[in-house]
Simulated assay, not measured.
Amino acid sequence: MAAYERVDERRDLRPGLGAQVPPIVRQNLLNLDQRGCEGLAQTLGCKPFHGRNLFKWIHKHGVDDFDAMTDLPKAFRARLAAEASIPRLPVAAEKPSADGTVKWLLELPDGQRVETVFIPEERRTTLCVSSQVGCALDCAFCATARQGFNRNLSAGEIIAQVRHAVQRIGRAPSNIVLMGMGEPLANFDAVVTATDVMRDDLAYMLSKYRVTLSTSGIVPNIYRLAEVSDVALAVSLHAPDNALRDELVPINRKYPLEELIPACRAYLRGDTRRRITWEYVMLDGVNDSIAHAKALIRLLEGTPSKVNLIPFNPFPGSGFETSPPERVDAFRQRLLRAGLVATTRKTRGDEIAAACGQLVGRVQDRRRRVPAMSQAVALRP
């Protein structure tokens, strides 16, 4: 979505005239990182530090009213009020869970809807945000894929999810994960801008270890990401070999494991303090045997890794079942004996369909759905 949006339309009401007056178009300031706000200030005749102050008002203080930004010049505030906006996303539904998890269904300006999930824990709070309306990558076990794909979110629509959560819970989350609807690396520019804002000291102040981008494995954009960012990287792996992963994660047919694993190693840049998190959903009788565990150990040899085992979260018509707890534990114990860091994710929010793989939102006009292969090819190398 562009940095501008329609916010008002008026008809010419003079007698005999029915022509439509062009809509007023305002710049969505949530699409701008700190540098973008500095550039905007200079364009409007102010100093760069006025742009930094604007950025701080928007994100650190959560202010929407330009008149309340008292350290900005009056003329600058007047121009902003006339030509810019700081939009909030209307809440179509809010669903709380007994475990404290909350899911918000947020409506976008074009009527599409995406889901955002807040997960409180004893020592941390995690916000799971979406990066696309639907998803084109067709992972076999994911409810989002069944929705089809319509479009990318703008950076402002991603950040608006964060601002909504901060407003509702009264503080910034300690962790943000781009694990909601969509493939983040298929929306590269907007996602990079949004993660820069999340980590900015004048905004949400999250460290690079507390912003996690989850990808199904668009290899060229993993290399691109390494050039411009150092957020934590999680990879939806789900299988230890190409044959099985081709079925579960179709993007593997274009970027197989022999290309994906080296790209992930390169992303770490030799930093021994960092690991790739490998997400591995446990599907009963599909990928959960000890033989699969041994193959996974061989695959990850030499790669600093953390394996996150995810009990499958059922949804209607999925065709899969959750692995029994004892089999998940046996799988994990085999990984641990091989020296891998391995954890089992605790399912949160499953009774409100807020758990991993269950987000669906509302995707209108599925005719715009883009097949996974053609979408990936369209990305810049």
Rank of each mutant, 00 (worst) to 15 (best):
residue 1 M to S: 15
residue 8 D to S: 13
residue 17 L to E: 00
residue 17 L to M: 01
residue 18 G to V: 01
residue 20 Q to W: 06
residue 23 P to C: 13
residue 25 V to Y: 13
residue 32 L to V: 11
residue 33 D to S: 07
residue 41 A to T: 04
residue 43 T to S: 12
residue 47 K to A: 15
residue 54 L to W: 03
residue 64 D to V: 14
residue 66 F to E: 06
residue 74 K to V: 14
residue 79 R to E: 13
residue 81 A to P: 05
residue 90 P to Q: 04
residue 113 R to M: 15
residue 114 V to W: 07
residue 125 T to V: 02
residue 132 Q to S: 06
residue 142 C to P: 06
residue 145 A to L: 05
residue 149 F to T: 04
residue 161 Q to V: 06
residue 161 Q to F: 03
residue 161 Q to R: 07
residue 163 R to N: 08
residue 173 P to F: 11
residue 187 N to H: 00
residue 188 F to K: 02
residue 195 T to G: 05
residue 211 V to C: 04
residue 213 L to T: 06
residue 219 V to D: 01
residue 227 E to H: 12
residue 240 P to M: 12
residue 242 N to F: 07
residue 252 N to G: 13
residue 262 P to H: 06
residue 264 C to N: 01
residue 264 C to G: 04
residue 266 A to T: 12
residue 272 T to G: 08
residue 273 R to I: 08
residue 276 I to F: 07
residue 286 V to E: 02
residue 287 N to F: 04
residue 292 H to P: 02
residue 293 A to V: 06
residue 296 L to K: 10
residue 306 K to R: 15
residue 323 S to M: 09
residue 325 P to K: 14
residue 337 R to C: 14
residue 339 G to H: 12
residue 355 A to S: 11
residue 357 G to C: 10
residue 362 R to C: 00
residue 365 D to Q: 12
residue 366 R to S: 05
residue 377 V to K: 14
residue 380 R to C: 11
